[in-house]
Design a protein around this nucleic acid. Structure first.
Lengths: 137, 137
DNA sequence: GTATACTTGCAACGCAGTTGCATTAAATTA
DNA sequence: TAATTTAATGCAACTGCGTTGCAAGTATAC
């Protein structure tokens, strides 16, 4: 189990208070978080620095963009195998119609889809939409 | 085969020159189009009116947003069965890594995906990414 | 402790998209 | 056909996400 320090070191990033705080928030969240979500959880973080930090983390393979079909960019932790060259984040995401939360469905098996479109498919994202467990009560 | 007039009439929208032009461009395009794409094809169209027009068409079920995993909002024609209450646009989209074009894959069969996540799934989008037929040469 | 170069804070900016309001114009009614 | 109704358009102004530039701050290596 990697500590925050280990994650930053492993990806050759400097360990700064801002980065630690941002990474803790993302690591500890059940759902993917937008820049604004993170900003609300961390009082007084500079919005611009947050953009930069998220961008850096994503480019290093620490976090990934959760493709959820909304206009709000959300981020979640990557698996341990990602780095700046390889992103292994081809899993489905679930977006709740009610609360807007987006969840990574890591354990979901995406079946192969046959196609004869003339397109060379390199990757595939699946977005499921509906009501999440929390809102279903 | 509906004419542009028929489509607008059927959806109870007034027939105006702007609406005709926008709808012609979208209908005749092989790929989904962004607001900017349309603006470039129609010289001197008012950007703001275009936003409004696209929003109106979408809300009436004439066009749908092509969910393609990019930050650029793109629109494509709906099937004939859509109206303001019912959108039948649950098909896959293909986004080209090279040219950025997004295509509707209407004929693609999306297999059912089993899950035990506690989520109530209401709809599902599939985004395929790779190289389109035009860029593959 | 010092030097290096990365990180942060802040100002400024670009652009997608929305809102408000007056004018225009399409459709309906008389 | 003309008058009326009301939806559509043009334009100004705005919001908010995201980017860029630069100086100051700071983490890390030596």
């Amino acid at each position: 189990m990697n500590t925050i320090h280990d994650i930053l070191k492993q990806h050759e990033l400097r360990i700064t208070p801002i980065r630690e705080m941002v990474l803790v928030v993302i690591r500890d969240s059940k759902s993917a978080l937008s820049s604004q979500d993170i900003e609300l959880k961390l009082n007084d973080i500079d919005r611009i620095t947050l953009y930069r930090t998220l961008k850096t983390f994503e480019s290093k393979g620490i976090i990934h963009k959760a493709v959820d079909g909304t206009n709000v960019q959300k981020f979640a932790m990557c698996d341990a195998g990602c780095n700046e060259h390889i992103h292994h984040d081809q899993h489905a995401h679930f977006n709740c119609d009610h609360c807007g939360s987006t969840f990574c469905l890591d354990s979901l098996e995406i079946p192969a889809i046959k196609h004869d479109t003339g397109f060379q498919v390199r990757s595939m994202d699946v977005i499921m939409k509906g009501i999440c467990a929390d809102c279903a009560d």
